[in-house]
Simulated scan of single mutants.
Amino acid sequence: MRMRPFQQVDVFTATPYLGNPLAVVLDGSGLSTQQMQAFTNWTNLSEATFLLPPEHPEADYKVRIFCPGRELPFAGHPTLGSCHAWLGAGGRPQGEHIVQECGAGLVRIRRDAASGKLAFAAPPLRKSGPLPEAEVELIARGLGLARTDIVAHAWCDNGPNWRGVMLRSSEQVLALRPDAAVLAGLDVGVVGPRGKVGVAGPRAAGDDCAFEVRAFFPGNNGMAEDPVTGSLNAALAQWLVGAGLAPERYVASQGTALGRAGRVHVERAPDGTTWIGGHSVTCIAGEVRL
């Protein structure tokens, strides 16, 4: 074991402790998969990442992404948080975009010099199209909804195997109390219109967000909820914009039900690339013994 540079970064927020935290080990060289997994489990966070020298000639760095119990080929908030930490540690990209190498391949990340926001190019969906009706009925029951409350649904699989459902309003989304016994084994992302489509009039005026998003997945103690989820928002954007259910540029809110204030900036560029971005802020910087 030795001391390695470490950061804990809050992602999808410019205000510390209102986003989704990420543990970043800036030098993961020489660590085994078992050591990386053990450290991830110990952090008690949703994800931890380990930066390594790139293997692909076009990549600026390589990252391995872990959540409790398993390694992920791709995840959104670890992508932005790892890039934020890499840049903060003196990383310099080879070209116009930062290029991250991960289990899903090469992911482009762009940096807005004026705002400080980072955005990743959403990887292609591995699975798309409507969910089986039996699963939609199961999800409705597990969320305590009538089947008719789900107005649209789709596979949103870009690594994590998300199932996306859309409700009529943000109020419905925020009122959800999922039943872990019914939803066991499912990763469910829920989106509901905010602002103009929302039921509450006062909230409609001047709301900075188009959608309220919540993400549920099986955890160690039943159904867990993720504060802000880049991979889900990327897949939701590809689905919703592609289906004409969302504009090509919008901001999604996530984490409200958990006392967070995550903001995910979505843009579909003219070339068809979906960019998912937001602010990140370093909350802890130092060393970790690994």
Rank of each mutant, 00 (worst) to 15 (best):
Met1Gly: 15
Tyr61His: 02
Thr13Pro: 00
Asp207Thr: 03
Leu31Pro: 05
His153Pro: 13
Glu225Ile: 00
Pro202Asp: 09
Val165Ile: 12
Phe120Val: 03
Ala140Thr: 10
Gly144Trp: 00
Arg203Ala: 14
Glu137His: 15
Glu225Gly: 01
Ile109Gly: 04
Arg111Ala: 09
Ser82Met: 03
Leu51Lys: 01
Asn161Tyr: 11
Glu96Tyr: 07
Lys117Thr: 05
Gly262Ile: 02
Phe120His: 05
Leu118Ala: 07
Val9Trp: 00
Asn161Pro: 14
Val9Lys: 02
Pro218Trp: 06
Gly278Leu: 10
Val151Gly: 10
Gly230Met: 04
Thr40Val: 05
Gly81Trp: 00
Arg64Val: 01
Ala134Ile: 08
Leu145Trp: 08
Thr274Asn: 10
Thr148Trp: 04
Leu87Asp: 01
Glu96Asp: 13
Glu58Tyr: 03
Met36Ser: 03
Thr43Cys: 15
His97Val: 08
Thr282Ser: 10
Ser253Gly: 15
Leu290Val: 11
Phe66Asp: 01
Gln7Arg: 15
Tyr17His: 13
Gly103Phe: 09
Met3Ser: 15
Leu31Gln: 05
Leu26Gly: 03
Ala14Met: 03
Trp42Phe: 12
Cys156Leu: 14
His84Ile: 01
His153Ile: 13
Ile98Val: 11
Met166Lys: 08
His265Trp: 12
Leu80Gln: 03
Gly219Gln: 00
Asn41Cys: 12
Asn158Trp: 04
His56Val: 07
Phe211Gly: 02
Pro5Thr: 05
Gly255Cys: 08
Met3Phe: 13
Gly198Ile: 04
Val266Arg: 02
Ser280Trp: 02
Gly103Val: 10
His153Trp: 15
Ser280Phe: 02
Gly189Ile: 11
Arg168Pro: 09
Thr79Ser: 08
Leu145His: 10
Arg177Thr: 12
Asn41Gly: 10
Cys67Pro: 13
Pro5Leu: 07
Gly69Pro: 09
Val281Met: 09
Glu248Ala: 15
Arg4Gln: 12
Gln34Ser: 13
Leu183Met: 09
Ser231Val: 01
Ala243Asn: 11
Leu31Gly: 03
Thr33Arg: 15
Ser29Glu: 15
Ala205Asp: 11
Ala59Pro: 06
Pro78Asn: 07
Asp27Phe: 01
Ala23Tyr: 08
Pro202Trp: 08
Lys62Ala: 14
Arg163Val: 07
Phe211Lys: 00
Cys83Pro: 00
Ala269Phe: 10
Phe50Asn: 06
Glu171Trp: 02
Ala104Pro: 06
Met166Ser: 03
His84Cys: 06
Tyr250Arg: 02
Met223Ala: 06
Ser82Tyr: 05
Phe12His: 04
Leu18Asp: 12
Tyr61Ile: 00
Phe74Ser: 09
Arg203Met: 14
Ala121Ile: 04
Gly103Arg: 12
Asn220Cys: 14
Pro93Gln: 05
Ala59Ser: 06
Pro202Cys: 03
Ser82Asn: 06
Gln7Val: 12
Val11Glu: 00
Arg126His: 11
Val188Ile: 12
Ala154Cys: 15
Pro124Phe: 02
Asp208Thr: 14
Pro178Trp: 07
Ala224Leu: 07
Arg168Gly: 13
Glu248Ile: 09
Ile150Met: 05
Thr229Pro: 13
Ser82Lys: 02
Pro53Cys: 00
Leu52Tyr: 05
Asn44Gln: 15
Gly286Phe: 08
Pro54Met: 01
Val24Phe: 08
Gly91Asn: 04
Val266Phe: 04
Gln7Leu: 15
Ala119Ser: 11
Trp42Ala: 11
Pro202Ser: 05
Lys196Thr: 13
Asp271Gly: 05
Ala75Lys: 01
Tyr17Leu: 15
Ala257Pro: 02
Leu45Phe: 13
